[in-house]
Computed example of a mutant assay.
Amino acid sequence: MKKNMGGLDRSLRVIIALIITLLYFNEIISGALGIVLLVLAVVFVLTSLVSFCPLYVLFKFNTCKRD
């Protein structure tokens, strides 16, 4: 896997994941929507950790700086 996510992109994903998690556990979002968003938050964190997003490959998108 070649990295395709830059630092800003990774940071924004982690921040969004934290916000979704806080909203879910404070019961501001709940039900099916809450579960779907929580799963999305987990995906955001995982893709941020590995600096790779499979959808970026599909759409030929890259936010990683090239040397």
Rank of each mutant, 00 (worst) to 15 (best):
S11N: 13
F61W: 13
I15W: 12
S11M: 13
R10Y: 04
V14F: 13
G6R: 02
L8M: 13
M5S: 01
S30K: 03
L37W: 04
L33A: 05
K2I: 04
G7K: 15
V57Q: 13
L18H: 05
Y24F: 12
P54Q: 08
L12I: 01
L55N: 04
E27D: 14
L46R: 01
A17P: 08
F52I: 00
S51D: 13
G6T: 08
N4C: 03
N62T: 07
L22Q: 05
D67A: 11
F25K: 09
Y56P: 04
K2E: 14
F61K: 15
Y24Q: 03
V14K: 06
K65G: 14
N4D: 02
T21A: 14
K3E: 14
F59Y: 07
I16R: 06
D9N: 12
F59L: 15
K60I: 11
A41M: 07
L55D: 03
V36Q: 06
L58T: 08
E27I: 14
A32W: 04
M5P: 00
N26I: 08
A32M: 11
F25Y: 15
V36R: 13
S11C: 14
I28W: 07
N26T: 15
P54E: 11
V43L: 10
Y24M: 01
A32F: 07
K60C: 11
T47N: 01
V36F: 07
I28S: 11
C53L: 01
P54H: 11
R13G: 01
A41Y: 04
R13I: 00
K3P: 02
I20F: 08
V14Q: 03
F25G: 03
D67C: 09
L12R: 03
M5T: 00
G7V: 14
E27F: 14
V57I: 09
S11E: 14
L55V: 14
K2L: 03
I29R: 02
L55K: 04
G34D: 04
L12Y: 00
V50E: 03
E27A: 15
I15A: 12
I20C: 10
L38Y: 11
V43W: 04
L38H: 05
V36D: 08
N4L: 01
V45E: 11
E27H: 14
V45L: 13
L8D: 06
K60D: 13
